[in-house]
Design a protein around this nucleic acid. Structure first.
Lengths: 344, 344
DNA sequence: CTGAAAGCGCTAACAG
DNA sequence: CTGTTAGCGCTTTCAG
């Protein structure tokens, strides 16, 4: 309707310089005399000129776009992380192009191609199961990818997670120290590393204390699944403590226990979650949980991907951020304050 | 490292056709013989060729990118809407480029310029206060913008919201019918249309029944603000019903009332929210609230922005999606016509 | 330091 | 239907 799009050529005209001079003024590593810079800046602002990122991307190969592949945002941890990720990247001059990966994994590979079509400079995959195919596809076109909150045992890709295994162990140690003996676990989606690392740490931790897992249910990281798993677990020989693979499910479990089964937490059963999303600290839940330090996870992720993009390559690694246990009221307290009653 | 980027020229070579033939095969409104199409497709898939969206954008002017401007994602309504928005757009061949708008409004105008730099074809502004400057800037460069969950009285921009005014009235009607007389309101951020439309409808509704607002607090759409507002409200002459401007704050208020002030809901006080986010139906809260139909809001938003982009312009309008009151257990039941009692 | 010239990969007339 | 020819707006040698 009104003002057309301004190009560097028009600015050049008005400033009485060449088009490439304009380009230089707007290019960080430029070389232009103070005079030129001034003339160009003046003309540019008068005309309302701004460089076209896409045109720049064509010739320079740098789109300043990072693809974000994400499967779902139910779990409050993800929106929170997304917000932080986006802000952090924005500060560094990059932006996130969002791609939703349908629930079906088959779809994912197509989505990656779509991302590549946009010439993304890197990809961050969150809440998506680690796929070798996916990673290889990216590698074959030289686009770095880092997995956020997902990992794989082999140290051939970049991944940033909390230390899920250690987190699981901490929960085991705590529950045992609190005197629990019939300890159950409600699992997340089986293909998620967050799920099996947490479980492995938890089970190993229990075993260390000569305790076997009392029972196991599967909630698949959904509220409904978790509620159902809880019902089954309490159908007979109920546990006296429950570790739920993430907070999102833990809330659902707590509600089911309290309002459906009439149980009292932590008097009848202790409940522990994982993530420490904001809701966990709400009085209604007051959930003991393992904290994933979103800030640290995000900044590590951003550092890695930008380093990759800008060529400061590093060896692929599986970054694990330490995850502290946050003790709240959903678990029975440890009886006395005697140091390490447990022996190793 | 490995395979370089394949261009249409290389495909053309291999297929034994011209480069423009390749382009045509990959352009929807193309015209190419079955033979050509076949040869090209074959060569392309053998080489792993895919058109470069950015290059296409340069010449065609269509970047297939839509900017999403968003201020915060605390309120569960937004991640949910974002997920839906992104999916809907993706199906239509567009993708969202995310821009976080800092809390400070001053920053916003810069952010819009950044979006424009990426040649976004349209902008969706969510959880951002309606800014005329912002809208004008977009209009001046011919980029359509639609406000999601925010509006303005003047019908000169596109906006999609629930019918906040009507929603507020429904709450008033309900609370009055339930026999409440000391009815208070906890407001959101004062510059948000969602806030004042809801309040206006609510207050008008009360007045219609010859009832004045008993008291008013301000929570600014934050948990902490809402909790503090609740404390003040109950400091003296406490209300017997409370309408909180959104669910996010309502949860915080409920927790404060129950765990800090020792009140029982709905026996001592009824609480109503707005949004109907998933948590509202959790047994812990079981919150009576006004439902924002995210699906409808999203599809309307997508329809509008794509219509604008593709030239099927329409008159700017303020689309208001009907918002039903969802009655749950956080409010005293209406005595006369409800077969079920609210006692549990 | 600065202008001229050569494209980045692709679409869109324009002739055949 | 198809190849040729111009560019889209910008960065980047390459000479001056």
């Amino acid at each position: 309707m009104s003002s057309e799009k301004i190009t560097s050529i028009e600015v050049a005209h008005r400033a009485g310089v060449s088009q490439s001079a304009v380009s230089r003024v707007f290019t960080p590593g430029a070389s232009a005399s103070k005079q030129t810079v001034e003339k160009v800046r003046k003309a540019a602002s008068e005309l309302g000129y701004r460089p076209n990122v896409l045109a720049r991307a064509m010739v320079s190969g740098k789109s300043r776009i990072i693809g974000l592949l994400v499967a779902y945002l139910d779990n409050q941890f993800y929106p929170d992380a997304l917000e932080k990720l986006s802000s952090a990247l924005q500060e560094r001059g990059y932006h996130l192009l969002v791609f939703m990966a349908g629930k079906d994994a088959g779809n994912i590979d197509n989505v990656v191609d779509e991302m590549l079509d946009y010439q993304v400079e890197g990809i961050i995959a969150a809440s998506v199961s680690m796929s070798s195919k996916l990673a290889e596809r990216c590698q074959s076109v030289g686009v770095p990818i880092v997995f956020f909150n997902r990992s794989q045992n082999d140290e051939t890709r970049f991944a940033v997670t909390s230390d899920n295994y250690a987190g699981g162990r901490k929960v085991a140690d705590y529950l045992v120290a609190a005197g629990h003996t019939k300890i159950a676990y409600i699992a997340g989606w089986q293909f998620a590393s967050t799920q099996y690392d947490r479980e492995a740490g938890f089970v190993d931790g229990l075993n260390k204390h000569q305790i076997n897992l009392h029972a196991r249910g599967v909630g698949n990281f959904t509220s409904e699944g978790a509620a159902e798993a809880a019902r089954l677990l309490f159908d007979k020989d109920p546990p006296d403590a429950l570790f739920v693979a993430n907070d999102h499910m833990a809330f659902s479990v707590m509600d089911t226990l309290r309002y459906e089964l009439g149980l009292s937490i932590p008097d009848d059963v202790s409940v522990v979650g994982y993530d420490d999303v904001p809701i966990a600290s709400w009085p209604s839940f007051n959930l003991t949980t393992v904290r994933q330090r979103a800030n640290q996870m995000v900044s590590k992720t951003v550092d890695i991907i930008i380093a990759q993009i800008e060529g400061d390559a590093a060896k692929p690694q599986n970054v694990k951020i330490e995850a502290p246990l946050i003790v709240r009221g959903s678990t029975r307290a440890i009886a006395s304050c005697q140091p390490n009653s447990s022996v190793k």
